[in-house]
Design a protein around this nucleic acid. Structure first.
Lengths: 206, 206
DNA sequence: AACAATACTTACCGGTCAGTAACATGTCAA
DNA sequence: TTGACATGTTACTGACCGGTAAGTATTGTT
C-alpha cells in the first residue's frame, strides 16, 4: 500500500526510466559499469538503481557475467544504429559515410567519454579469455575495423587497409588517452589528425 | 623446522626470486596485477606468490592501493631506464633516440604485451580519481608525451607537437588493440606507421 | 471471479576480501 | 648471552560479494 521507501536519488533516476524491468536493468547496468567499473558495481546496486531487486535481475539474466556481455551487446547495437544512419544519409557515397563517422567519433563521441571506451575497459577488467563478454568485444572491434577498411576501399583512397588501421589505432588511442591524460591531451587533436589522414591518402593521379 | 608446504609452482617461481621481501612482493605483484587484473588478485595471493605472508606485505605497504601505486611507479622507473639508454646510445642525436624508442615500442614491447598497457588497464580498473595510482598514471603519460614532443622538436621535424601526438595515440591504440582484437590486428602495422610518420614530417626544404 | 505470469520482499548461504592482533621464530650484532 | 629487529604463523574481524530459497503482492487475461 504505502509507496516504496526508496531514496529520492533512486526515485529521481527511476522517474527517467520506463519500460519493463529488463530494459531498466540493462540501461542502468550499462551506465554503472561504465562509470564505476565492472568489479566495483554489485548486482544489488544495479537492481536497486533500476528500481527493482536482485531476484528479478536473476530472472532475466543468468549471471552477472552474462549481464555484462549483454550490456556490451547493447552498446554494439547502438553503434550499429549510428552506422546505419550514416549509410542512409550518404547512400552510395563511401567518402561521405566515412566523414560522418570521423566527425562522430572525433567531435561528438569523445566529449562524453571521460571514462574511455567501454569495450577496452571491460577487456581490461576481464582477463579471462573465456568470459562471455570477450566474444562481444573481439567481434565488435573486428567488425569496426572491417567496416573502416571497406569504406576506405569503396571511397577509392590509396592503401585503404593501412589507412583504415591508422584511423582505428588513432581512435583507440584517443579514447584511452582521455582516461589517462585527460580530454585536453593528444585526444583533442584527433579530428585534425583524421582529416589529415584522409587528405594524405586521397588519390593523387588520374 | 619443516620446509614450507608450498606448491611446486610457487617454489619454482620463488626460486627465481631473491632479495628482501619488499622487492619480491613488488616484483610478483606487478606480474600478477598485469596478467590477472588488479581486482582479481588478492593480497594473500601476492604474499604467497612472493614466498612470504600478508603481515610482511602490510609491514612494507600501507594498503593494497598503495601497493598498486608503487607497482606502477616501478614500471615508470623501468621505462625511464630505457629512455636513459637511448640517450646514452645516441648522445646529442634526437632523431636516433626517437628511432630507438619507436623500435622499442613497435617491435619489442608489443610482443610481450598480450594484456596491453599496464597503466591503461589500471586506469580502467580504478575509476576513483583520488586513487593513489591515478597520480602515477597521469604523470607518466604526460611525461611520455612531453618527451616525445621535445625529441621531435630537437630532431627538427616539422610540426613536432602534432607529430608527437600522432605517435602517442598510435602507440596507445596499438597496445590496447592487442587486448581487444589481438596482436595480429592493426597493431601489427605499428612500426610501418611510425616510420611513415617520421618520413612525412621530415624537413623538406633547405 | 479465477488463474497464471511476473514482479517484489526478506532472509539466508558459502565464499572471499582487506586489514589487524597476538604471538612465534629466526638472525645478527654487541 | 643477550637484546633488538625483521620476518613468519595462525587466527580473527567485519564487510561485501554472487547467488538462492521461500513466500507474498501485483497485474493482465479470460
Amino acid at each position: 500500500m504505502h509507496s516504496q521507501p526508496v531514496a529520492e536519488k533512486e526515485a529521481a533516476s527511476k522517474a527517467a526510466l520506463d519500460g519493463p524491468p529488463r530494459e531498466r536493468i540493462l540501461k542502468v547496468a550499462r551506465d554503472l559499469f561504465y562509470r564505476q567499473g565492472i568489479h566495483a558495481v554489485g548486482v544489488d546496486a544495479i537492481a536497486a538503481a533500476a528500481g527493482t531487486n536482485k531476484m528479478t535481475l536473476y530472472r532475466h539474466f543468468g549471471s552477472k557475467d552474462e549481464l555484462i556481455a549483454e550490456c556490451l551487446a547493447a552498446y554494439v547495437a547502438e553503434l550499429e544504429g549510428a552506422w546505419n544512419e550514416f549509410a542512409k544519409k550518404h547512400p552510395g557515397d563511401a567518402l561521405g559515410q566515412l566523414h560522418s563517422w570521423l566527425r562522430y567519433v572525433g567531435e561528438f563521441k569523445l566529449q562524453q567519454a571521460e571514462r574511455g571506451c567501454a569495450f577496452i575497459n571491460a577487456a581490461a577488467e576481464l582477463p579471462d579469455k573465456n568470459h562471455p563478454a570477450r566474444r562481444v568485444i573481439e567481434q565488435h572491434k573486428s567488425e569496426l575495423r572491417r567496416k573502416l577498411i571497406a569504406l576506405c576501399d569503396e571511397a577509392g583512397l590509396v592503401e585503404p587497409d593501412l589507412l583504415a588501421d591508422k584511423m582505428f589505432l588513432l581512435c583507440e588511442g584517443a579514447r584511452t588517452s582521455i582516461q589517462s591524460i585527460g580530454p585536453n591531451g593528444p585526444a583533442s587533436r584527433l579530428p585534425q589528425m583524421l582529416d589529415g589522414l584522409v587528405a594524405d591518402h586521397a588519390p593523387r593521379k588520374s
